[in-house]
């Protein structure tokens, strides 16, 4: 089981971060990925894999003052 933004998600273990984001049609230029509390740099999206029990946070810029 993997937690993505606090919600359980299945079927993503083994994917790279790049594959995972691609599947969600996430705008890569506006996504920061934290894996178990550590920022995954964009250059490492292709080589970083999602493991069982990972906690992923996907964070973007939104409007704010």
């Amino acid at each position: 089981m993997v937690l993505v933004n606090g919600a359980e998600e299945s079927g993503v273990v083994g994917q790279t971060i790049a594959e995972f984001l691609n599947q969600r049609s996430a705008p890569i230029e506006n996504i920061v990925v934290e894996q178990n509390g550590t920022i995954v740099h964009r250059a490492d999206f292709d080589t970083t894999k999602i493991s069982e029990n990972d906690k992923l946070e996907l964070i973007s810029f939104v409007g704010g003052g």
Partner: peptide, 17 residues
Amino acid sequence: ITMALRRNNTGKENILN
């Protein structure tokens, strides 16, 4: 211009555009 950071659950709209 200021912006905030929040969880992205939809993956749709991108303010940077």
